[in-house]
Design a protein around this nucleic acid. Structure first.
Lengths: 344, 344
DNA sequence: TTGAAAGCGCTAACAA
DNA sequence: TTGTTAGCGCTTTCAA
């Protein structure tokens, strides 16, 4: 049996098309779709047949607008870079069998005007498109913008915000800097992250603590901010490595792998060999860090598990179940080939 | 100045709230938001002020429903695994400055019932939520489900479907198998991909061609299908490696890295050393392949560029500009540590 | 320059 | 068991 009496529209079929074709009301079709009681078996069958014929699928947008819940989880990121991509893999894996769908939204287009994207995304999607959200490295404190459950991964600094998942940044940074110190480095630079994120502050703190414990004084000239982003890290990296040899750092601890990778790039450009002339260590252990030249020493965060955990917390919140609101995960030093003793 | 005369609602502000607060009609607020002409400067200012006070952001869902276009690009995947994540990174990077937002949708929850997810996603999101879509490894031939522009990455096999981006699978597979042959392997197994995808068929074809060219006959017992998915690849991998030593392959070419990684895992479990007892080569060069033990030899596809290209084609289609509808990208053999001459 | 009203595709009372 | 009706939050004619 073919389709409508009218010439086949080129646009997708709507519930109205189905209703007309099946000779029932729109409400009845809706009931069939959503498995509500009170539709005769014969009608159900007929409607289902038409739905099949027409290849009808309900519009997520339209039903979201009307319904209170949508069964979709939102993952809000500024952009899809290695860090958020790893979290996404974990979240996606954790989603299997939960009955939820996943919608990931990249909200910020410009590197420089990237504050507040999560507030905007949350407002635009919250309560209508998504039932709950995981927001990755929010650029500001999240309040209950959209009155949906939210968990933040690598949260913004500030007093009681949303539920959070992070890793032990203080300890992680300490272990990275300790590693450099243990190798014998004395002029160690720090290429910081986004100052608004608690993680960046803690990594700096860990760095300082390590140096102090070793009897070294962090040199203000060797402390730069790279914003966790390669584009933002390039200039400070270049400054650091362009210092005269006697003042140039023999090692740099970059607050994330992307910045560290950029340091590698700049070093190569300036003719500095890593690790012979310069040691570099990153943070995060994104997959890319293993395949750089040389492979990057770094501090591993369990990104997949952090994603899974964030999802678990969010699902518990959605199910109104009690759940811990702050989870901190361990880190691990990963020594690869970008760190070595300083040049003699 | 504080907010409403009414007790602050706990739900997000809507356009009605803004209108009430500003003492204008909803239509006027809409005009202000969308920069339409015909609103006095003073009114505009007042409305903008209220919007700011209330932290109002328009609901993507509601405006999508009413509008014809949404300025958002959809990326439709079955799940977020390394392959789609890499494409996503490329797409995300390419999106900067285009004015489009990105919404990535994971449509399939279950590994086993994963056929047709893209048809569903396309119907549910198309024309209402997204202006165009990039669909990754579609499980079926895409017709104009949603009458929005679509480009498929790693397309389904079949006659003229949507615009496509893929890489030279025939040549890539050939180079992988040639590598194994050149190392001296004679009993080479093939762990295939998803038979419905053109890429999987071509990789098998390339494999056969290589063996034939070397005067070897592909052994049907050593040809398995792994479906590109670790969960689906485990059983066939185990079968292959559990064969008696004289019939067991000395090398396996897995049709994608995820399957190859699974082979590594199974080999380890069975006490086979890689590459001493068994060589393994994958396909894709996802970042994970570089950090396995041992690092995986593989065939690189330029995944970021493929993502960027798919986006470029899609944007051209959206802009009604002429554009090539099929782009094939080159591949490159990446030899790492998982391949070596066969045991003597 | 402003607002009233219709309607996007759907769901949920409520009536019939 | 089915259909009528009233919206969800927004944009867009069209009148005022």
């Amino acid at each position: 049996m073919t389709t409508a009496d009218q010439p086949r529209r080129s646009t997708r079929a709507t519930i109205v098309d189905v209703a007309r074709e099946a000779g029932v009301s729109v409400a009845t079709v809706s009931k069939v779709i959503n498995g509500r009681y009170g539709v005769s078996e014969s009608t159900t069958e007929r409607v289902l047949g038409v739905i099949d014929d027409l290849g009808y699928e309900s519009s997520l947008v339209a039903s979201s607008l009307r319904r209170k819940s949508t069964n979709v989880i939102g993952v809000l990121v500024a952009e899809f870079e290695p860090y958020s991509a790893e979290l996404l893999k974990g979240i996606s894996a954790g989603l299997a069998g939960t009955g939820y769908e996943l919608l990931a939204h990249a909200g910020s287009t410009d590197v420089h005007s990237r504050s507040g994207w999560e507030r905007r995304s949350l407002s635009r999607l919250g309560r209508t498109l998504i039932d709950g959200a995981i927001v990755v490295t929010p650029s500001m404190l999240i309040t209950d913008q959209a009155d949906i459950p939210v968990v933040a991964v690598d949260p913004h600094t500030g007093p009681d915000g949303p539920a959070t998942v992070d890793s032990d940044n203080l300890h992680g940074a300490r272990s990275a800097a300790d590693h450099l110190v243990a190798l014998g480095h004395r002029r160690i630079a720090f290429l910081g992250g986004r100052p608004d994120l608690r993680s960046a502050q803690l990594r700096e703190e860990g760095f300082r603590a390590s140096l102090l414990a070793a009897g070294l004084t962090p040199d203000p000239d060797l402390m730069k901010v790279g914003g966790y982003h390669p584009d933002l890290a390039e200039a400070p990296a270049r400054e650091l490595l362009s210092l005269p040899p006697d003042r140039r750092p023999t090692a740099v601890f970059a607050a994330n792998d992307l910045s560290a990778l950029k340091v590698l790039e700049v070093a190569r450009e300036l003719g500095l060999r890593v690790p012979e002339d310069l040691s570099v260590i990153g943070y995060d252990n994104v997959p890319e860090s293993a395949s750089s030249t040389p492979p990057l020493s770094t501090v591993a965060q369990p990104l997949h598990e952090m994603g899974v955990t964030a999802l678990r917390i969010l699902l518990a919140m959605l199910a109104q179940q009690p759940v811990e609101r702050h989870v901190r995960m361990p880190t691990e030093l990963v020594v690869r080939a970008s760190t070595a003793p300083p040049p003699a």
